[in-house]
Nucleic acid binder design. Structure first.
Length: 107
DNA sequence: GGAGTGACACGGA
DNA sequence: GTCCGTGCCACTC
């Protein structure tokens, strides 16, 4: 019954596996776990883990490639800086050519 | 125990 | 292509 724990660890595990220069979306992660309609849970997990574990949450964005979580980081530009440092082009808090950087857990 | 909240996604206009 | 409303699950008060 502790599927929640599994879901919880699963999200962290996937986010942790995201290679540099690549990004993924909440929906992809949620769908890979089995909570396709519950993309919000992915963000919720990160919200709880942010600051507790070394999770590259900056590599997780919404379906539009918008850095929705940047407001939860220390600096308003920290998230963008990290992604740009990895080679990801960002304009107006949004990733350009998201499909080009998009990464899937199966990889 | 019930209601509100949240780092989103999808369908329709 | 973007914007609005609805649904989703788990946590907190």
């Amino acid at each position: 019954m502790p599927n929640t724990q599994n879901f919880y660890e699963k999200v962290l595990d996937i986010v942790r596996q995201i290679p540099p220069g690549r990004v993924t979306t909440y929906g992809i992660i949620a769908g890979y776990i089995g909570r396709k309609g519950s993309a919000r849970m992915v963000g919720w997990v990160l919200n709880k883990q942010k600051g507790q574990s070394n999770i590259p949450a900056h590599r997780v964005v919404n379906r539009k490639g918008l850095l929705t979580g940047k407001m939860h980081f220390e600096g308003i530009n920290l998230m963008q800086e990290l992604l740009e440092n990895e080679g990801v082009v960002i304009v107006n808090n949004q990733i350009v050519d998201l499909d080009r950087y998009l990464w899937y857990p199966e990889d």
